[in-house]
Simulated assay, not measured.
Amino acid sequence: MSDGDTSLNVSYTAFLGTRMVATGLLRHVMLNVKDSLDENERLQLLIFDDRTGKQIDVDIRGMAEDEWDQSGGQTGSLPDTVLNDELPRRAGRPKLGVVSGEVTLLPRHWEWLKSQPGGASVTLRKLIDEARRAGAEQNKARASQEAAYHFMTAMAGNFPQYEEALRLLYAGDNDRFFHSIREWAPDIRNYIQKLTVDAFSER
């Protein structure tokens, strides 16, 4: 398997040509396709990581079911717990999870912060939380776009409107993107819809 990923909690989807033949945990996917496909079909089978849209490399020929029972990531011991008295003491209100720090602002910034309900500290925390949420949404959208890109490159490179669909994907144009792939094979189209669930921000 590529990327050394042996997580048992990751979902995968298998395609035979343009037809989706199995989806779910890797063991489930492998056991479903192993005995139902002939040798030539297995060579044409492509399996994708549902998180990244990337194809994984797995050889299922001759594998027994009990081999999948034994698969999984290696476990290791957790690091020793650090005793409380070994932790450096920090200023603030540690029981509340509050830690003090230094912030340098211009006078007009301080004046605005102090005029906000709750004062400067409350306002700063709210602003930071909002920025973190916005950043998280942007990261989700980017990851969703990249997953769709990887899958489309592997499976739809010769499909009509392929390049236009990629452009619309990164432009964030939801309606026109799905319109551009409307003639693609249904299973391909449905999987792309699954991968792009976070790709388009609401407008």
Rank of each mutant, 00 (worst) to 15 (best):
S121W: 07
T6D: 01
D35P: 05
A64H: 13
L8V: 15
K194H: 11
F48P: 01
L26K: 10
F15D: 00
P79F: 08
W68V: 01
R203E: 13
P160Q: 05
N139S: 06
V21R: 02
W68P: 03
L96T: 09
D38A: 00
M20C: 10
V58D: 01
A199L: 11
P94R: 00
K95P: 00
P117W: 01
Q116F: 08
V197Y: 03
D129Y: 10
Q161Y: 14
M152Y: 10
D5G: 08
A156L: 08
D173Y: 01
E111D: 14
H109G: 14
G4R: 07
H28C: 01
G118I: 04
D69V: 01
L26G: 00
F48K: 00
F151Y: 07
G76I: 06
H109N: 12
D129E: 15
R90Q: 14
A154M: 09
E102H: 04
F15C: 00
G101W: 02
N32Y: 04
I47N: 08
A64M: 03
D49E: 05
N84R: 01
I181Y: 13
W68M: 11
T104H: 12
P117H: 02
L168H: 05
D50T: 09
M63S: 03
A199Q: 06
R19E: 10
Q116L: 15
A22Q: 04
S7V: 01
L195H: 07
K140Y: 10
K194C: 04
P186E: 02
L87N: 03
A22D: 12
R19K: 11
P117E: 08
Y191G: 04
G135P: 13
D80M: 10
I47H: 02
D49L: 00
V122N: 06
Y191K: 09
L124R: 10
S77P: 02
L83M: 08
G17I: 01
A64W: 13
N158E: 09
E164N: 15
K34N: 06
D3H: 07
R125M: 11
A22P: 14
N9Q: 05
I47C: 06
S144K: 06
V10K: 13
E67W: 13
P79G: 05
T75A: 09
L16E: 07
Y162Q: 04
E130Q: 12
W112S: 02
L45N: 08
S180W: 01
R176H: 02
I192C: 12
T18L: 04
P88V: 07
L37Q: 12
M20N: 05
D5L: 14
L96G: 05
P160A: 05
S11N: 00
G17N: 03
Q193V: 11
K140L: 10
S201M: 14
K126Y: 12
D175H: 07
I181G: 08
G97W: 03
N9M: 13
T75Q: 12
L78T: 15
L37D: 11
N174P: 03
L78I: 09
S36H: 09
A141Q: 10
R167I: 14
A131Y: 15
H28T: 14
G97D: 07
R93L: 09
L96D: 06
H150T: 00
L127S: 15
P94G: 01
E163I: 08
